[in-house]
Design a protein around this nucleic acid. Structure first.
Lengths: 235, 235
DNA sequence: CGCGCGGTGTGAGGCGCTTCACACTGCGCG
DNA sequence: CGCGCAGTGTGAAGCGCCTCACACCGCGCG
């Protein structure tokens, strides 16, 4: 276990995190005072759905997978949290149980902020509250979109959308032909399809030349193709 | 058109609304200064998905239906907003387009608060911001639950859930055997089922004695029956 | 009155997804 | 090395939901 960094350094670490940009020095010090640095290696659980929500996590480096488990062992991946993002904000705010599982998607370095400290600072730092409001309402936007998607759109359209979303999330978004590192099993689970159906669908697209399939990954060769599918058109 | 109430009265109206309980007099006055009272009759649109989000609505009396339209004319009912609740908060916070349609579900009396006024007050009234945060994160909780429901649960379970939810929403929740006024077509649309499938499903439940079907309505005779279905068990 | 229309009831046919079953590959490990 | 395992590729069978088609009922309206 690494030794904990001293207080001053923890506030400095906080200050570098995108979410805390612009916060006052006082707020940063108060938050840093009780912040705990934590490290996880790939696959380790960070919290589980239903756990008591004790606070907020900020990702310093690495990535975290947020997902919900189904009674029969399936899993829906809600989002991938990357560097400079935060997660665990719902339970932070209402003190209720966590709404999803969080798992380290690779080695990751996090900062944990206690709920009570955070709320205390929030009371005196409206700008932080407003920032958080913007963030939470953005989440709400995305989640609502997901609800629409699930009720209205065809499974294959959802799959195409998921690929585009993953390309955006995995940082390779800017690339001409983004490569997405995910297994077909996981991919299917994020949209509620079986592995087999996912596989057949991907292979069809590969035949169309829009996709390259590798082991544990696939590469989008023709983004416009997927954009069309995602908006409900036939290819 | 009713004449507008004077400023003092509008702040007083605000103060009586559950969401603004505990706000300072100064904040209420500032919000009240630009608040507009608006009235709608049944079926009138309040805003549409994609409209510019200019502000927040508070329901003084009546009810508002929040729904999203699908490209092919279907409709998903997200929530029914009742007295002492607020809606339109997402677009309020990030200034983006409205994420759903809002329609008066009956005659209703609303208060409209401009986005810029609201944000200005928020900056100086952290307690209001915290209240809003709690509210938005609660919405996020519910919406996430809906996402889970849609990906994991069987259509019939969703239908059962929808009936329970509608019973709760239509005010007849307290009744022993709540009657729900909705056509089978609409009901199907709220869970993404065809009218025919909905019909067959309801008839099966009616045979089990759990449900009474009338024209344009149905009555839950056995709530426990639906609660079981909703939690994924076989009847 | 007859007609249209909205809501409901019901069957036939078809398509898509699921489950199950099995095969092939590459790779880590004892 | 051989073994197991994770990931992928594919086919058969089955089931649930959708679409289409049609029938019945009650009601408003010309």
């Amino acid at each position: 276990m690494m030794p904990e960094a001293p207080l001053a350094e923890k506030s400095a670490v906080l200050a570098r995190h995108a979410f805390f940009k612009g916060a006052s020095a006082g707020a940063l010090n108060r938050l840093g005072a009780h912040a705990r640095e934590v490290r996880y290696s790939a696959g380790q659980p960070i919290f589980r759905k239903g756990d008591e929500g004790l606070g907020l996590f900020a990702v310093l480096s690495g990535a975290v997978k947020i997902s919900v488990p189904s009674p029969d062992g399936r899993e829906l991946v809600l989002r991938l949290v990357g560097e400079n993002e935060i997660f665990g904000e719902v339970a932070l705010l209402d003190g209720g149980p966590r709404t999803a599982d969080a798992m380290a998607a690779g080695r990751c370095h996090l900062l944990f902020l206690d709920r009570r400290d955070f709320l205390a600072v929030l009371k005196e730092e409206p700008s932080l509250a407003i920032k958080l409001l913007a963030l939470v309402s953005d989440r709400l936007r995305q989640t609502s979109e997901q609800v629409e998607e699930l009720t209205f759109e065809a499974p294959t359209a959802r799959l195409a959308k998921a690929l585009l979303r993953l390309a955006r999330l995995q940082g390779t978004a800017a690339a001409e032909k983004p490569q997405i590192r995910i297994t077909q099993k996981e991919l299917g689970r994020t949209v509620g399809l079986s592995r087999e159906t996912t596989n057949k669908c991907l292979n069809e697209w590969a035949l169309d030349g829009a996709l390259k399939i590798e082991k544990g990954a696939c590469t989008l060769l023709d983004r416009a193709f997927f954009a069309r599918l995602a908006s409900g058109e036939a290819p």
